[in-house]
Simulated assay, not measured.
Amino acid sequence: MSRLNGKRAEAQKQGLKVNVAILGAGRIAHTMANTLAEMTRDSRYSSLIEPYAVAARDADRAADFAEKYGFDVSYGSYEELLADPEVDLVYIATPHALHAEQGIACLKADKNILVEKSFTANADQAQQLLEVADETGLLCTEAIWTRYLPSRGIVADLITSGEIGQVQAATANLCYPTTHKARITDPAMAGGALLDVGIYPLNFFDMALGRDTSDRTIADIETSTVPYETGVDAIDSITLRYDDGVLATANASILCASDRSGTICGTEGYMVCQNINNVEGIDLYDLDHKLVRHIDVPAQITGFEYEVAAAANAILDGKPECTQMPHADTLRMLRLMDQIRSIWGLKYPFE
């Protein structure tokens, strides 16, 4: 068992922290590194985690990364990181198609893992990864940050309160022009809009309309996509019909920008969530489309701190998953995206 798993009392007594390592040194790794550095200066987290190591395929790049963010050590290969017994938690920050193989390697090296979304490229890969997690008893959780943000609870509480009445429909969109990034347009890396940005509207619906608040399940899917020249999906439209008649429509794209909003419509009014990728505020409207009130969300470092803290606390408590994104939800969302791609007739080269 890993160094600190299930040893909260011992860790507190000895002043030990959860040593976090980052596997990969791309754009999102920099966001995580900045988050970790800021967490060490925040009294809520300073005694919980330590930015410890980074690994990249280039030693100089890893060393520069470590120096910039104050990491203790750096490695020019992933294998060196996995051999370090001081690593407690590995944040996997590589493209989707690599997550399963790298996650399994981490678990077999006695490392807990926080895996950037999409958890894997498909449900089969996720099942394989989770089977190894079950065998090791280590923490394995998906780092889809919207599942951990405080705004999730705020939205759920508003729906439960009945302030907008009975929910009948929802819409959500997330679009960014990102075709300049090689991995985004590469089928071999499971590129495309769905796994990169489309995953957020689908998770928005799942949190607001799915198992969090009712027994509602998806009864039917209507969807279409416009392919990019490389074969990945470039613009997606997805409509989910739930078994109680609620309709949810999502749009995602790697070609254009959008307002990133999410709207939940009820019989007594509706709410608009500003930026479903990291809700900045929520506006409630009545049946006459008059603003009833605005709700701010709590100030945060970057938003990544919530998933890191959840993972670190789960490790100290000896839990194999985080309640914010349990394994069952990760699998269910990947099966949904597999089903959507099946309707499109889109397969990745490795499938």
Score class of each variant (00 low, 15 high):
332 R>I: 00
208 A>Q: 00
217 T>S: 15
138 L>E: 00
267 T>P: 11
218 I>Y: 14
252 A>L: 03
96 H>T: 03
162 G>N: 06
93 A>L: 07
112 N>Y: 03
93 A>C: 14
269 G>I: 08
65 F>E: 06
144 I>L: 15
255 L>S: 03
123 A>N: 04
232 V>G: 09
71 F>Y: 12
297 V>A: 01
169 A>I: 10
127 Q>F: 08
220 D>W: 05
200 Y>T: 14
348 Y>L: 13
23 L>Q: 08
98 L>R: 07
311 A>V: 09
259 D>P: 03
64 D>N: 09
336 L>E: 07
187 P>I: 12
322 C>W: 09
254 I>Y: 02
202 L>Y: 07
136 T>P: 11
110 D>K: 11
300 Q>G: 02
41 R>M: 00
234 A>C: 00
85 P>E: 10
219 A>K: 14
137 G>W: 11
313 N>C: 06
301 I>R: 03
131 E>I: 04
172 A>F: 12
86 E>F: 04
45 Y>P: 06
210 G>N: 12
149 L>N: 11
117 K>H: 10
252 A>R: 06
42 D>C: 05
48 L>D: 10
38 E>F: 00
5 N>F: 15
48 L>E: 13
137 G>D: 07
317 D>V: 01
117 K>M: 02
70 G>C: 04
302 T>S: 14
301 I>K: 06
178 T>Y: 01
206 D>Y: 08
351 E>S: 08
60 D>A: 15
86 E>Y: 05
336 L>W: 09
107 L>P: 04
70 G>R: 02
158 L>Y: 09
109 A>Y: 13
31 T>Q: 13
287 L>S: 02
279 V>M: 00
108 K>W: 06
140 C>T: 15
6 G>L: 09
149 L>R: 02
